[in-house]
Design a protein around this nucleic acid. Structure first.
Lengths: 175, 175
DNA sequence: TTTTATTTTCAGAAAAACTTGAAATAAGTC
DNA sequence: GACTTATTTCAAGTTTTTCTGAAAATAAAA
C-alpha cells in the first residue's frame, strides 16, 4: 500500500498544494449538494463551486479544463446559473472570451430561485384549484360536495400561505 | 371529429360522473406536482392525491386498481408517505387489510420533511465547512487565505441562517 | 399445522435526466 | 467579405431514477 499520501512524507510545499486541492474539492462538493437540494444537476453545482472559490474570473474553456466536463454541459450550466443570477459576466479588455464570477450574495440567488422556479408553480396551482371548484359545482350530493369543498379550501389556504411566506423567506435570510 | 365530449349531448347523470372524474384527476395532478417539487416520484403524489380526495379509507389493492399502478410502486409509495407522516393507517374490524387515510394537516407533513430531509443535509454541510477550515490552516499566502476565509465564513452564515429559519417555517404556515 | 390473504422485496425493464461532442451559429479580426 | 475563435444547440449515448411483477416473507384464519 502506497504511503505517498501521508503528510509526514511530503515536503511543506507539497502539503500546501494538497491542502489547496482538498479545499477546492470540498468546496465544489458543497455546492454540488446544495444545488442538488434545489433540483439542479451536478454540473451546475460544480461550476458554481469552482467560481465561488476562485479569486479570478474564469472563462468557459478554463472551467471545462479544470472540471473535466464537456463544452455542452458547461454552456448549459452557465446558462442556468446566469438565469438564476448566481453568476455574472465580466469583460476583460482585449479578450473576446466571456469571463464569469460568482455572485456571492445568496439572498439574490434564493430570491431569484423563488421568483422564477417556485412562484410559477403556485400560479398554476391556483388555476388548478379554480378548475376543481368549477367541476365541484356540477355535483349534486350535498354530503360529497361539502367534503370536497373543505379539502379544496384547505389546498387553497396552503397555496395562499406559501405565496405569502416564500417571498418573505429571502428577506429573512439577511446573510 | 367525435362530439361525445360536448356537455350538451350528455345526460345530467353522465355530466356529473364526468365532473367527478375530472375533479379527481385535477386533484391527483395537483399533488403529483407538489410532491415533485419536494423531489418525490410521481407515484407518491398520485397515491397521496387519491387519498386526500377520498372520503373513505382505501386499501392498497384499491389504490392499485384505481391508479393502475403496480403493487411494488404502491407498497413503496405508501412506505414513503408513512415515513413523512403524510398518511395514517386505520383498522377496519373484521378485515385484515390495512386501510389508509390522508393526513390533511400540511404543517405536520412539512415539518417532517424539513426535519428528515433537509436538516441532515445541513448537518453534513456543517462538517464539510469544518473540514474546509482545517485545510485552510495549511495555506501560507495571507492574501489567498483571507479571500478563502471570507468565502467560507459566508457559507457558514448561510448554513446557520437556514438552520434557524427552516424550523420556523413550518410554524409560520399555520394552515 | 396448513391454507389463504396481504404486504414487502428485489432483479430486470422502462422512463427520465444528464452529459457528450460534433455541427451550426454567432461574434470578433484582418 | 473571408477567416478565426468562442458559444450554443441538439441528436445520440450514458447514467440514474422509477416502475413492474413475480417470488419471498409475513400475518391471519381455518
Amino acid at each position: 500500500m502506497s504511503e505517498k499520501h501521508e503528510a509526514a512524507e511530503m515536503s511543506p510545499a507539497a502539503q500546501e498544494m494538497r491542502a489547496r486541492h482538498e479545499l477546492e474539492l470540498e468546496g465544489i462538493n458543497y455546492f454540488v449538494r446544495f444545488m442538488n437540494l434545489l433540483g439542479l444537476p451536478r454540473s451546475v453545482g460544480e461550476i458554481y463551486g469552482l467560481l465561488y472559490f476562485s479569486k479570478d474570473p474564469l472563462s468557459m474553456d478554463e472551467i471545462v479544463k479544470r472540471l473535466g466536463m464537456s463544452l455542452g454541459s458547461a454552456s448549459q450550466g452557465l446558462r442556468t446559473l446566469r438565469s438564476f443570477k448566481a453568476i455574472r459576466t465580466t469583460y476583460i479588455m482585449g479578450d473576446r472570451k466571456d469571463y464569469y464570477v460568482a455572485e456571492t450574495e445568496f439572498r439574490h440567488l434564493i430570491a431569484t430561485f423563488i421568483r422564477e422556479e417556485i412562484m410559477p408553480h403556485l400560479d398554476s396551482a391556483g388555476q388548478r384549484i379554480e378548475s376543481m371548484e368549477q367541476h365541484l359545482q356540477m355535483l349534486e350530493d350535498k354530503n360529497e360536495k361539502g367534503f370536497l369543498q373543505a379539502r379544496i379550501n384547505k389546498l387553497s389556504r396552503l397555496k395562499k400561505g406559501a405565496a405569502s411566506v416564500l417571498p418573505t423567506l429571502s428577506g429573512l435570510l439577511k446573510l
